[in-house]
Design a protein around this nucleic acid. Structure first.
Length: 351
DNA sequence: CACTCGTGGGC
DNA sequence: TGCCCAAGAGT
């Protein structure tokens, strides 16, 4: 029987994905950008973002020279915004400390912000054909099945085993193709539900299949009790516009512009008076135009906007939208509803 | 090690 | 419909 890697490579030549945008041309910069975007994010979601991003920032120099707000603007909607902030920081480090060139060593890449072991390995493997093992979500699923690794793949013990399996199977040559191949196999054949074992080039010696456990491997994450969190957003609306604020650089939606978030809706009026005195004055005008003092909307995510598309900024992080012409597409008209709650669902439950 | 960080799709 | 998860990394 052919080695695992050889069977995977033969399958990849016929059935793999060879036309992803970051494969043509496959430069370290484009591989890096794609790998960061692809962290915990599906390929189909990433593609349009990658196209727009690399059109605006075709190289690490243009990215490093840009304001971080412009980077976040291109990232808006993709999620996990720390990736964008780290990407920008990393670009500046590359330009300032590495003469504009990416390190060719995996360990050196791991020292850069936003680049962990798997991403560093993927970059050097894809860009330089270096024999480094990756362990992304696809590889974890493929290896957990083929080596019949019990336990949740995110646990320390399972990861140790999976890294060992990943390293043992990584070939000395054609490593760029191999890393792409194992990801393609996981994405196209060895899928989470209903894997297509009949089409799998390594099914003959797959532990999970031989044990008839493909449906139960990899094991799911252990459940845990999660607190319910409620977010309250204050929509401070006036005839002049909608009041947004720039969020702190860390935490959820860091650096983006959203509606002000209230801790306690019962005392929202006092809260507005304390934190947004100017908005209150304008909201008073709104009363005379038939609006309530302020209106509340929990659909915070729909108001998340990049700075570049915003209206007048008259103070750092404070933006006024004028009704009509200046209200950007994507900002719905004010709604009349008052308070609703939103409970945490799902996010933060993965790693 | 536990937790956080987004959004969208599958079932 | 609620739940799980996806080309992980930082704190």
């Amino acid at each position: 029987m052919q080695p695992f890697a050889q069977r995977l490579l033969d399958w990849f030549d016929r059935n793999g994905r060879h036309d992803l945008p970051w494969q043509h041309p496959r430069t370290p910069y484009r591989v890096w950008v794609s790998e960061i975007m692809l962290q915990q994010t599906r390929v189909e979601t990433v593609i349009p973002y990658f196209e727009r991003f690399t059109a605006s920032f075709p190289d690490v120099q243009s990215l490093a020279a840009a304001p971080v707000d412009d980077v976040l603007a291109l990232w808006a909607g993709l999620g996990y915004y720390a990736r964008a902030r780290n990407l920008h920081r990393c670009a500046r480090t590359i330009v300032e400390d590495h003469n504009g060139h990416f390190p060719r060593e995996r360990v050196a890449l791991e020292a850069l912000p936003g680049i962990g072991r798997s991403t560093a390995a993927a970059i050097v493997a894809q860009a330089h054909d270096a024999p480094e093992a990756i362990l992304d979500g696809n590889a974890k699923r493929v290896l957990a099945r083929h080596a019949a690794v019990d336990g949740w793949p995110g646990s320390t013990a399972s990861q140790k085993t999976l890294w060992r399996e990943a390293e043992a199977r990584t070939p000395a040559s054609r490593c760029a193709d191999y890393t792409q191949a194992i990801m393609d196999l996981g994405a196209l054949v060895c899928t989470r539900s209903r894997p297509d074992c009949a089409a799998c080039p390594v099914a003959v010696d797959c532990g999970a299949r031989l044990q008839e456990r493909t449906a139960e491997l990899p094991h799911p994450r252990p459940k845990r009790e999660r607190p319910t969190r409620t977010r309250w957003a204050a929509l401070l609306h006036a005839p002049e516009g909608i009041y947004l604020e720039q969020r702190p650089p860390s935490g959820i939606w860091g650096g983006l512009y959203t509606l002000p978030e209230a801790e306690d809706p019962e005392h929202l009026e006092a809260w507005v008076h304390t934190h947004w005195p100017r908005a209150e004055a304008l909201a008073g005008d709104a009363l005379n135009h038939g609006f309530s003092h302020y209106q509340l909307d929990l659909r915070v995510q729909r108001y998340r906007l990049p700075a570049g598309e915003c209206g007048i900024m008259d103070a750092p992080g404070v933006i006024w939208y004028k009704p009509g012409q200046s209200r950007p597409a994507g900002i719905p008209a004010p709604i009349q509803g008052l308070l609703q709650s939103e409970k945490d669902s799902g996010h933060g439950t993965n790693r």
